[in-house]
Design a protein around this nucleic acid. Structure first.
Lengths: 192, 192, 192, 192
DNA sequence: CATGAATGAGCGTTCATTCAT
DNA sequence: AATGAATGAACGCTCATTCAT
């Protein structure tokens, strides 16, 4: 009565193989081959490339949601915000499909598998909470929206991918500095 | 003797059509169709997609080089740097092939058409001049390299493409703020 | 488990159509059309033209190997040799790809599909056995190598293709006569 | 009043370049490039590949005709015949287009340029004269036609091309031996 | 006459997707 | 449920031939 064992194993192997791939150049045929599974099986589990990317993203989204929770709970506002951005960047570098799931405006909850839509929703509200808190505590300028913050992370991800991973910290530092409230924006003002 | 009139016209039409395309998904066949030109003609002028992208980039690169010259000559160091970044971002948003030409490390001068290699060389030295001047004048932190700056622009380009053009100014502002010298880095320090 | 029925049918139809073609001007796309099969199917079974030619040659090679076996076992040395050459010529006229498989020196066993390499190997040793026996029995001049004999057959094939099939017997007769030991080479000598 | 000087020079260069090519894989575009001449010029002089091959063949045909004349005039019938075959083979190995001109049955005199048709006609009658004389003098079996002899040479050419030039003499020797009259055909008969 | 730009049919090949087994 | 053979649109590219300059 558990014919699902095979199915579960297949799904698992497919996801495992896909995780090692760049989501932007996924080829379902290859995945099937490397997972030791028929193409038909891949399509049964994931009717479109998008579906596979979404499935992969669920786990990452949940980790990102957890990171947001931690950030909200952390005592130091600045450190919390920085820590969250670090986590977000790390996760996006690991899961290249995340960008699409998070920023494709044409992708409504209805388009997503339930599990993914829920996880994404938590990330959105997590982002909101983290950013709101940072803004409330004067750590981040108030004219930055959640969507813009997300896109900035994506831009950062892109920049890091273009160069060496070693750039990561410097670029992140720049971004963080740049998001501080503009009130004390100019060095001159600070000096004066 | 001089390049034939019809050849010039063909080349022009091809470039014109290609300019309206995303360089990352160019189809030489499509270009031919939309330019009202035979496939063979496109291949005669641009044997590879790369060749076409390079040809497109030459003009943009020259504009970018000119922008660098202006920035170096401008009186106010901060305004000059900001102006240059604005120009760079604008040009990259217009010419999606620029990123490759500027940041593909595997792309040496030898791989490029002479005209393109020269124009790129000028942009590199222009970037260097602009950044050096900005760092010398205390407008930009000294631990930022030219290559990193270029990648940051690419990241910004990416972020803007993901959202609305309206984000442009805010995101650019953030990036600029973030690049200021770190000496007075933390608001707390400044306040204290 | 066993090769699927439809796959076998496709393979068969492709081979059947290809058999009716000149191997030197095979078009995989045409084959597909005439076999009532998708292009992709042809490529799945035969990734290159060479693969198809080899597949076609296997059967012919096996027949040629068998002909060699018969020739070696036949009582009359001269008749055996003649019979073998007749068979070889007939088979090469039927399968225009055989020449390449047999005489392309750049084509090592490693380049060939196992089945084909094995069949070709048998033909080579068969040729060797037939020729050796003929030479031992004084039916063929000893300064003729296996490779030369093969090329002579190819030349004969070529000559027959240029004219009418009716030439076949005469030309073969000439070739056979020409290969007899040179000891009694000149009519004059024989008469004297 | 001699605007033909250019034309003559162009024609010459084209022929010169083409002579260094294999007639079976000629590409008019390449010829043009290597001859430092426009494609249009090549087409003006030689509207089809065939026309170029024919033009190239004229010179070879005349040499072959001369060889036939020599053979007819030579004292020793056997040596004369052998010498002619040697010449014919040598010329065909040099000019790979000769085969077509000589053996394409669909190619009537009307299809050929005058000069070529005439030269070919002389070769045909030369072949006839050489073969007739050889047959009359008992050097060659009488059941061999001119056309068959020509095709045998083509077959020999083909065999030599497949292997090393060093094979040439042996294979020619075999062919010559094979064409001797059949009366003394069997070694046994000769011995007896 | 010479030129070489333009043409486009046609080839080899890939790959996302469907569907018979 | 799993398989993988079949499909064919679509791509990149070549090259013989035409024709405007």
């Amino acid at each position: 009565m558990s014919p699902r064992a095979d199915a579960v194993r297949s799904r698992e192997r497919i996801l495992e193989v896909a995780r090692g791939r760049d989501a932007r150049t996924l080829r379902l045929n290859d995945i099937a081959g490397d997972a030791g599974v028929g193409i038909g099986t891949v399509y049964r589990h994931f009717p479109t490339v998008r579906a596979l990317i979404e499935a992969l993203s669920v786990e990452t989204l949940m980790r990102l949601g957890a990171a947001a929770d931690r950030a909200v709970a952390a005592p130091d506002a600045h450190a919390a915000f920085r820590g969250f951005l670090e986590d977000a960047l790390t996760l996006q570098l690991q899961d290249s499909g995340l960008e699409t799931v998070l920023t494709d405006l044409a992708l409504t909850d209805a388009d997503l598998h339930d599990e993914c839509a829920i996880a994404r929703g938590k990330v959105f509200s997590g982002y909101d909470a983290v950013l709101s808190r940072a803004q409330r505590d004067g750590v981040v300028r108030r004219d930055l929206s959640v969507a813009q913050l997300q896109r900035l992370i994506c831009g950062l991800e892109h920049a890091v991918r273009l160069g060496a991973p070693a750039d990561r910290d410097l670029l992140l530092d720049i971004l963080l500095s740049g998001m501080r409230p503009a009130a004390l924006d100019s060095p001159a003002a600070a000096i004066g």
